[in-house]
Amino acid sequence: MELDFDKTGGLVPAVIQDELTGQVLMLGYMNQEALDKTRQEGLVTFFSRSKNRLWTKGETSGNTLQVKSIIRDCDADSLLIKVNPTGPTCHTGSTSCFGEEAASNRATAIRFIADLEEVIQQRKANPVEGSYTNFLFEKGVNKIAQKVGEEAVETVIDAVAGELDTMKGEAADLLYHLLVLLSATGLELKDVVEVLQERHKK
């Protein structure tokens, strides 16, 4: 990846984007050494203009940015880095340095669902004694499907009755069991989302 560091005074701007949610998290600057270290270690490292040294995001907070891809722009003088954040990106505790709390909350929810699906997949591949998820996998698709049906009915009953507080819990149970059912049948949430995306185009 050739970049024109000279055109920008030795530093190029690097836009950091959540690879899963698409949310822009922050903007930093890199010199060649910072870019090389980012590639080698898989964690975003900037050149800090205030500290006048290399700075790996999360080196003190632990909230690192795991690199998923690095893309240069058409003029070869800036970068788009897609990442998997391990915690809040902003020092204020927000998901994004640009605020957007509503977007941050949505992004946090999306990432949690993705993390939950990953835990379910890990339980399937590496069973843990006493795990409810593994109990469901052991019972098989019929039992899991039954639980999805039960939770769906309970969610509907609470919705019709206007019991929104308990409905949230039932909806959470429904979503969890649906993720387990998808995994048990060899599907992933992205497969369902792809169907929704295709329908949205029509």
Rank of each mutant, 00 (worst) to 15 (best):
R72D: 14
E2A: 11
G9Q: 01
L35F: 02
Q32M: 04
L11P: 04
C97N: 14
Y29V: 09
G93R: 07
Q32F: 00
V156G: 04
A145D: 12
Q146D: 14
L27W: 02
T8R: 12
E188D: 13
T166C: 06
E101L: 08
K202I: 13
P88W: 04
Q197K: 15
L179V: 07
D6G: 00
S96R: 10
A125I: 09
Q17P: 04
N105W: 06
E151I: 03
I70N: 10
T166W: 11
G140N: 01
F47D: 05
L65E: 08
R123F: 12
I71R: 13
G10S: 03
I81V: 11
V128T: 04
E198V: 12
G99P: 11
L11F: 00
A107S: 14
F46N: 12
C74F: 06
D158M: 12
A171T: 13
I120M: 03
G186H: 05
A103S: 14
G22C: 02
K124D: 10
Q32N: 05
K139N: 08
L181D: 09
E41V: 01
R123G: 07
E117T: 10
D77Q: 03
K143S: 15
K51E: 13
H200A: 15
L181C: 09
V195R: 11
E151L: 04
Q17H: 10
E41K: 02
V44K: 01
T185W: 10
E194D: 15
A125C: 06
E41Q: 01
S183V: 15
L182E: 14
T95A: 11
D191L: 05
K143L: 12
T86G: 08
H177P: 00
L20Y: 08
L43E: 09
P13N: 03
T95W: 05
Y176T: 15
L20C: 05
G99L: 08
R199V: 12
L3Q: 06
V148E: 10
H91C: 06
R39S: 02
L178M: 14
K190V: 15
L20N: 09
N52W: 00
D77G: 03
Y132F: 13
G186I: 04
C74G: 09
P13K: 00
A34I: 01
A184H: 01
A159V: 08
G93I: 07
R53K: 10
L65F: 01
P88S: 09
G58C: 08
A102D: 12
G162V: 06
G186P: 06
E163F: 02
M1T: 11
N126R: 09
L174A: 10
R199K: 14
S94Q: 13
E194L: 04
Q23R: 06
A161L: 03
S61M: 01
V24Q: 05
T108M: 08
E117W: 07
E19R: 09
V180K: 07
R111W: 00
Q17A: 03
I157E: 14
N84L: 07
S69G: 07
D36Y: 00
M30K: 05
F112I: 13
A171Y: 12
L35V: 00
T86W: 00
F98V: 01
E100W: 04
V44Y: 02
